[in-house]
Simulated assay, not measured.
Amino acid sequence: MTSSSFQRTIALPAPVCEQAAQHLEQAAHRAIDGAAIPLKAFRAAADNDFILPATIVEQAAACLLVLATETAQTVRPSALRATISVALRLRDAAELSHQPAISSRFW
């Protein structure tokens, strides 16, 4: 009997994916470690109905938080809020993917 690995995926709204791709582009230009992989995935997300592996979403959120930290003193507050907002939406989506679909309290 063979076992197949189950990879959690997350369906994100198109605007969130587009915003994340824009911010990840900035992260890649600033050479933030690990930004290239999620950037490529988010660019291709439209071809997959905006469904991404949870690990990629988590990595993207971390990269965007690093970007926010590194640019906090040099960008407009609105730009900083936009970056943080997208990062937190990605992080929240990734955290939700770790929760079981059915709570044991209903059993």
Rank of each mutant, 00 (worst) to 15 (best):
A79T: 14
S97N: 07
R43F: 04
S97G: 05
S3P: 10
D33R: 11
L52W: 00
P53R: 06
A41R: 05
A87C: 06
T74R: 02
A68I: 01
N48V: 13
A101V: 08
R8N: 06
I84N: 05
R89F: 14
A11L: 07
A21K: 04
S78C: 11
A45Y: 10
A60Y: 02
A11T: 09
L90W: 01
I84G: 05
I32E: 10
F50E: 14
A68K: 00
W107N: 10
A87E: 04
V75N: 02
E95I: 07
W107T: 13
S103H: 14
A79K: 12
Q26W: 10
A61S: 08
A60C: 03
R30H: 10
Q26S: 15
W107K: 07
H23N: 08
A54C: 00
A27D: 09
A21P: 03
Q59Y: 05
L88C: 11
P77I: 12
L96Y: 15
A31V: 07
Q73N: 13
S97K: 03
A14T: 08
A41S: 07
R76W: 08
T83S: 15
A61Q: 01
A31Y: 08
P53Q: 06
Q59E: 07
A20T: 09
F42H: 06
V16Y: 02
T71Q: 04
T74M: 02
L64H: 00
L24T: 02
E18C: 09
I56D: 00
T55E: 12
L90A: 04
A31E: 12
